[in-house]
Amino acid sequence: MALSDADVQKQIKHMMAFIEQEANEKAEEIDAKAEEEFNIEKGRLVQTQRLKIMEYYEKKEKQIEQQKKIQMSNLMNQARLKVLKARDDLIADLLSEAKQRLTKVVKDSGRYQTLLDGLILQGFYQLLEPKMTVRCRKQDLPLVRNAVQKSIPIYKATTKKEVEVQIDQDTFLSENIAGGVEIYNSDGKIKVSNTLESRLDLMAQQMMPEVRTALFGANSNRKFSD
């Protein structure tokens, strides 16, 4: 039985509606899948960027922390150097004051004579030469003569050696020193400096650890002591 035109049109419309529905459903499926893939990719990109940002700021934080440590170390070193300089300046001032006080020793002739006796005899023992020359300040000549006269027999008795000592009356020690003597061998190439300043410097050098401890306390960084 043949279909009428109306039936054909009806079937065509039905098929078109079915095809359209299938197309809409397929389009919705594609849209849903695209949306899902978009969200997944967006999440991945966001997470990647978040990790990059976190890594960037972690790196920056480490750099800042390192800079802070370096700056703190520099500041501590500068402070330490300032403290050391202040301590050295204080010790230098104390030595300068001690040298100024040497003039008081010289003004006491009896005390100064005893000191010269010891300095000259000690110089003789240090040189141990058959001929020696003593040099002093011009104003100390009388005291130095007395000291030499006393020291020669003591030196001979102790060393069992003869000695010839002369006092240099052509060249004198500087007036800027507090006192004491210099003793030379016969050709002047070997010298023992027993001026008051040189003796003070030597004593200060030997006693510097004790001086520093007395002024600033024990060094906490020092592991061993003599």
Rank of each mutant, 00 (worst) to 15 (best):
N194D: 11
D140N: 02
S193Q: 03
S174Y: 04
E164G: 01
I177L: 07
T114V: 11
Q169K: 00
Q139E: 15
K138D: 13
L121V: 01
G180D: 03
P153G: 10
D168S: 00
A157L: 14
S109A: 14
V181N: 06
T159D: 00
Y125W: 01
V165H: 06
V134L: 03
K189G: 14
T171H: 13
I154Q: 08
D168G: 02
E164C: 01
D117S: 12
D89R: 02
L90E: 15
S151C: 15
R87F: 02
I190S: 08
L115Q: 06
A92T: 13
I154P: 04
Q113A: 11
I154K: 10
T158Y: 10
N185C: 12
M132T: 05
I91H: 00
V134H: 04
G118C: 06
L128P: 10
Y125K: 09
K104Y: 08
E129I: 01
I183Q: 04
R137V: 05
L119T: 03
K138N: 12
L173G: 04
D89W: 03
Y125P: 00
L127W: 07
V148K: 00
K191S: 07
E182F: 08
K99A: 01
N185K: 11
G123S: 15
V165Y: 10
P153S: 12
Q113M: 09
L116A: 07
Q169C: 01
R145I: 15
E97G: 09
V192F: 04
L128Q: 15
P142I: 09
V134C: 03
V163M: 04
S186T: 09
S96G: 11
T195N: 12
L102A: 13
L128H: 14
S96H: 10
C136M: 13
A86T: 13
G118A: 12
K104W: 05
V192N: 05
K160Q: 05
G110F: 04
V144K: 07
Y155V: 01
L119Q: 05
Y155H: 01
I167E: 08
G123N: 08
T195R: 09
D168Y: 00
D108C: 00
T133K: 08
R137K: 11
S151D: 15
Q166K: 14
L94I: 11
P130C: 08
K191Y: 01
L115W: 00
K156L: 05
Y155M: 05
L173N: 04
L116D: 08
Q139V: 15
S174T: 03
D117R: 09
K156A: 06
T195Q: 12
I154W: 00
N185D: 15
L94N: 06
L119N: 03
D93Q: 10
T195A: 12
V192I: 14
I177P: 02
T158C: 05
T103Q: 13
N194W: 01
D140V: 02
Q122K: 11
N194T: 05
R135P: 09
L116G: 06
E162S: 09
K99T: 00
M132G: 08
K85L: 08
L127M: 07
M132Y: 12
A178W: 09
A98V: 02
V163P: 04
E164Q: 09
Y112G: 01
S109Y: 07
